[in-house]
């Protein structure tokens, strides 16, 4: 099963775009992140929903002590969680420079192995500089369930 058959085409994030626009694309396409293409047109980073939450919503102390939190914490006032303000911020400040690219002719098993190696849920499929889409664990699982895996 080659990943070109199962990658999910998405828009890319560009300099100056708002977090809200990029988040909307991730939610609509059901992907954990999309690539960032800089002003020169190079794929130079990625926007990741998980890292956005880590940066803006969940302080490290909360992560470390999550198992100690009671049920009565609804009045926790995180200054970070101001959704409107966050969505209106520029995406540029939330871009991670590490990007793992796969060729469209890679086998899905290799994609899964690379996801394990880098502890990630998704990878970008590129042909040279041409971005083709995102491959996720779920997109591979979906291909298996819907028998797309038989397509060669």
């Amino acid at each position: 099963m080659k990943i070109k058959h199962i990658s999910i085409p998405t828009k890319v994030a560009r300099p100056g775009m708002l977090v809200g626009e990029v988040m909307t694309e991730c939610v609509e396409k059901d992907v954990p992140g999309i690539p960032f293409v800089d002003a020169e047109g190079n794929l130079s980073g990625r926007f990741s929903v998980r890292h956005l939450f880590l940066l803006c919503c969940i302080p490290q102390d909360i992560i470390q002590g999550a198992h100690l939190l009671g049920d009565d914490i609804e009045d926790l006032d995180f200054p970070h969680i101001r959704a409107d303000e966050l969505m209106a911020r520029k995406v540029d400040e939330f871009i991670f420079p590490d990007v793992i690219r796969l060729s469209p002719n890679f086998q899905a098993i290799k994609a899964l192995a690379i996801m394990e190696q880098y502890n990630t849920e998704y990878l970008f499929v590129t042909e040279g500089d041409d971005y083709q889409g995102v491959v996720t664990r779920l997109s591979i699982a979906k291909a298996i369930v819907t028998k797309v895996c038989c397509v060669e």
Binding site: P59, Q60, D61, I62, Q64, G65, L68, L69, I73, L76, D77
Partner: peptide, 12 residues
Amino acid sequence: APLTVLICRLLK
């Protein structure tokens, strides 16, 4: 230290 920050956050 992180537990202390968490405690203080909860106690405001």
